[in-house]
């Protein structure tokens, strides 16, 4: 476990909170794109066989989540989410600080099963891309069709963006997207997003 007071987000060097505080209210209201970081989340990689009722029940008891079995879908329960990553793999997302307790509860519930829960909270950060221009910006680098008939809130996907492997999820209809990217690629991806958005009116969202 990493002590929370020593944690430093991968994008800390960009000084995003200070940039956000320096924006005029008019600029924020006028923006057609919001960019921001959503770091330090509880992230747990979960493996198990969804055909096994005991596995699904153990997860339901431990996290209160019904795991999505349809590919590239997100299930939410309270403050937790489960993102489909593969036919026997999910990513559980929650507010930072819950990871140690939750991974322990899951591990106890899954004891004796061919299943596993791993705390991967330190592996990646999440970047918010939201607003009227979000789809246009992402279309410059993502090979997926993000038109609402294909990709909507509650959908997720793993793909590539600007050379980085990412997890993409849409969280609302503004539209808002969240991009999960490994810490080592976060700096590069933020540069790419800001440069790609050079024609748009960008507000930093914290």
């Amino acid at each position: 476990m990493v002590e929370s007071y020593r944690r430093r987000s991968p994008l800390a060097s960009f000084g995003l909170p200070a940039r956000a505080a320096a924006q005029s209210p008019e600029a924020v209201a006028d923006a057609d794109l919001q960019l921001g970081e959503r770091p330090h989340r509880c992230q747990i990689n979960l493996r198990g066989n969804p055909q096994d009722g005991r596995f699904l029940e153990a997860v339901r008891n431990a996290a209160g989540l019904a795991l999505p079995t349809e590919p590239n879908r997100v299930a939410a329960a309270g403050e937790l989410k489960a993102l489909w990553l593969g036919p026997d793999e999910w990513l559980i997302l929650g507010p930072g600080g819950r990871e140690t307790e939750l991974v322990g509860t899951l591990a106890r519930g899954l004891q004796g099963q061919h299943a596993g829960a791993t705390d991967v909270s330190e592996a990646r950060t999440w970047i918010l891309v939201a607003g009227g221009r979000a789809r246009a910006l992402l279309a410059r680098g993502i090979p997926l069709d993000l038109h609402p008939r294909e990709f909507r809130p509650g959908h997720c996907a793993q793909t590539g963006l600007a050379g980085a492997n990412i997890i993409l999820q849409q969280t609302d209809d503004r539209p808002s997207y969240e991009i999960g990217v490994t810490n080592s690629f976060a700096d590069h991806l933020w540069h790419w997003l800001e440069r790609g958005a050079i024609d748009y009116r960008v507000a930093i969202s914290v």
Partner: peptide
Amino acid sequence: VHARGCRR
């Protein structure tokens, strides 16, 4: 292999 997707 769906290397950048579900890795299967």
